[in-house]
């Protein structure tokens, strides 16, 4: 846990985080890396970001929290379509984890990176207490809904609705545009959609994928699967020094992104 009162703890050994006079009382030093078990700092298009063990991305300079692929209402959608009757607790579990991150990080802005709802009718199908819960989380902060392939239509919910959004040096969209970031001269791109996961120590973990230009977030929703980080779908999106930052537990840890194109270690 990161107590807000004292800001980011200074890291004596690596000096990766230092206290500074940002509006939030926090700034990141030049050298990225691990600064506590739950957070991994990374520099993307000259911006300092924090990949969290929860699967959320935090941008201290902007006091901005970004989560992707919540898939709220997934169980409800399957039941509605005469599919499996999955346990109807996915939305509340997703919201509970989101609330925990908001409580710790106190963002001024939250960006949901698309596929926030499992389909166009999922919002209407959300149980009443979940809707109220969501409203409570949104109160007092800017909230941006990025459009995803699962929730393309206009949604009847407060907040700003955008296909993509640019904040300082970073562009937020649902699906990464091949070659886009690099060609745009290092413009950072933050996206979701693919639900990347990686295998480490005989276990599958949700993960961030990132290089200096681009980052893909893991799915934050409870009922979501994943795509292996070495899937050819990621070919051409990342440079050779890309990282996979595993999360989905209590630790965010970095490893080189496994690549499909390399056939030897």
């Amino acid at each position: 846990m990161i107590p807000r009162a004292c800001g980011w703890a200074a890291d004596a050994s690596g000096g990766s985080i230092s206290k500074a006079a940002s509006p939030w009382g926090v700034a990141l030093a030049a050298k990225p890396g691990q600064f506590d078990r739950m957070s991994y700092a990374i520099r993307l298009a000259a911006e300092d970001l924090v990949a969290r063990a929860s699967g959320a991305l935090f941008w201290p300079a902007q006091e901005l929290l970004c989560v992707s692929d919540l898939h709220l209402g997934k169980a409800e959608r399957m039941a509605r379509r005469a599919g499996a009757l999955l346990p109807p607790y996915d939305s509340r579990d997703t919201l509970a984890r989101l609330e925990a991150e908001i409580a710790v990080l106190r963002p001024r802005t939250v960006i949901c990176l698309g596929d926030s709802f499992d389909d166009g009718a999922s919002l209407a199908g959300l149980e009443e207490d979940a809707r109220l819960w969501l409203a409570r989380l949104m109160a007092g902060r800017a909230w941006v809904w990025i459009t995803g392939n699962h929730d393309p239509g206009p949604l009847e919910i407060a907040g700003t609705h955008r296909a993509e959004v640019q904040i300082a040096g970073l562009r937020f969209r649902h699906i990464a545009e091949a070659g886009g970031a690099a060609k745009a001269g290092g413009a950072g791109e933050i996206s979701g959609h693919y639900h990347p996961k990686v295998r480490l120590a005989g276990k599958a973990w949700r993960c961030f994928l990132a290089d200096a230009d681009r980052m893909i977030l893991p799915a934050f929703g409870t009922y979501t699967g994943g795509l292996w980080a070495d899937d050819p779908a990621f070919d051409g999106l990342f440079g050779p020094a890309a990282l996979a930052i595993s999360c989905g537990g209590t630790v965010a840890r970095a490893m080189p992104k496994p690549r499909a194109s390399t056939r030897s270690r």
Partner: peptide
């Protein structure tokens, strides 16, 4: 509660399918 994964479907299902462990953990919790 869940369907069998049929040959070949699992691969094409990709990120749409998720582990039964998630359902197990969710039920235990709620």
């Amino acid at each position: 509660l869940i369907e069998r994964s049929h040959q070949g479907r699992r691969k094409s299902g990709r990120q749409a399918t998720f582990s039964s462990d998630i359902l197990y953990d969710t039920l235990r919790k709620y």
